[in-house]
Amino acid sequence: MNIERYLTENRQGTPLQILRLLRQGRVTVNSDVVDSPRATVAVADNVRVDGMTVTGRQPQYLVFNKPVGFQLSMDPTTPHSLGSLLNAFDQPRQLKPLADLPKEAVGLVLASDDEHFLTDVTGQNWPSQFQVQVSGTTAPVLAPNQAFREVTTQVDQVHQHVTVTLTTTDGEMAVAVLGALPDALGPVERVTIGPLRLPVDLPNGAYRGLLPAEIDELTGPLDDEENRM
């Protein structure tokens, strides 16, 4: 069979991920780098991805709803860390987070044991949406800031609060600015990273695996050269 089908049947990623693996030179057959999805592979061949046999490589792609005060450390022995939230199956994995959400904020965090995936997501330079609710029905006025791509406010007359949302690639600045607003009703929350929105059914302090479509959206489209393969 061809290497693309082989990697797919061995659950090495989505179809777009497998093309990336090949293009990035991360797949070897009998120690030779293979970059064509049409290359053939036999049962007796030694196929590896990132130096690991395909039977031993089952990467994890996770989305967390981080609680307030929790560190981004993935060490399961560290109290009040994302690692302490992991179940027994995920604890032994060498997971790493996208380390871009301050401890005082809550919401969406990505983590994976596939460093290339994290690098690909970082390379997209996705903007994120950060929001906070403040009491009252008068929308606060924020000083102009070139780091903010968009600022929106939504007044809730029924519950007597205003939701302020910033869209930016500078998460630390967004958390600092929103956290300094008077009469905030809770911590600053990140609700999106690029195309990924914090799942509404993911409770605070919980996590789940990313869906294949979410993985592909986060890593961005393949370039023209990859599409011609």
Rank of each mutant, 00 (worst) to 15 (best):
Asp216Phe: 10
Thr219Cys: 11
Asp90Cys: 07
Glu189Met: 07
Asn10Glu: 05
Ala42His: 13
Val109Lys: 04
Asn46Ile: 06
Arg20Lys: 12
Pro97Asn: 06
Arg208Cys: 11
Ala42Leu: 09
Glu189Val: 11
Val54Ala: 02
Val177Ala: 08
Leu98His: 13
Val188Asn: 10
Thr77Asp: 08
Leu142Asp: 10
Glu226Pro: 09
Val134Gln: 03
Ala42Lys: 09
Val27Thr: 09
Ser36Phe: 02
Val33Glu: 14
Asp114Val: 02
Ala139Met: 08
Thr167Ser: 11
Val121Lys: 08
Gly220Glu: 15
Lys103Leu: 09
Arg26Asn: 11
Pro37Phe: 02
Gln146Cys: 01
Leu21Asn: 01
Asp223Thr: 04
Asp201Tyr: 01
Pro92Gln: 01
Leu185Tyr: 05
Lys66Glu: 13
Asn125Val: 00
Leu16Lys: 15
Arg23Asp: 15
Ser112Asn: 04
Ser36Gln: 10
Thr192Lys: 03
Leu110Val: 01
Thr169Glu: 15
Asp224Val: 02
Gly25Trp: 09
Gln58His: 13
Leu72Cys: 09
Gly83Glu: 03
Leu62Ala: 08
Ala206Arg: 11
Val132Cys: 02
Glu150Gln: 15
Arg228Phe: 06
Gln60Tyr: 11
Val141Leu: 05
Val33Lys: 12
Gln131Asn: 14
Ala88Val: 07
Pro195Trp: 03
Arg48His: 14
Glu225Tyr: 15
Leu222Arg: 09
Ile18Met: 10
Val158Arg: 15
Gly51Asn: 02
Tyr61Trp: 10
Val106Met: 14
Asp183Met: 02
Glu226Trp: 08
Thr40Glu: 12
Val177Gln: 14
Gln131Met: 05
Asp35Ser: 06
Arg48Gly: 07
Ala184Gln: 14
Asn87Lys: 05
Thr137Gln: 13
Pro221Ser: 13
Phe148Glu: 06
Thr137Ile: 12
Val200Ile: 08
Gln124Cys: 08
Gln24Thr: 06
Thr168Gly: 06
Leu21Tyr: 11
Leu118Val: 00
Tyr61Leu: 00
Gly107Asn: 06
Thr55Glu: 13
Val162Trp: 04
Gly56Lys: 08
Ile193Asp: 12
Trp126Pro: 12
Pro144Gly: 05
Gly123Gln: 13
Glu226Tyr: 04
Pro67Cys: 02
Leu22Thr: 03
Leu218Phe: 08
Asp113Cys: 05
Glu115Tyr: 05
Gly56Leu: 00
Thr122Pro: 01
Tyr61Arg: 07
Thr28Asn: 06
Gln157Asn: 14
Trp126Gln: 09
Phe70His: 06
Leu19Glu: 12
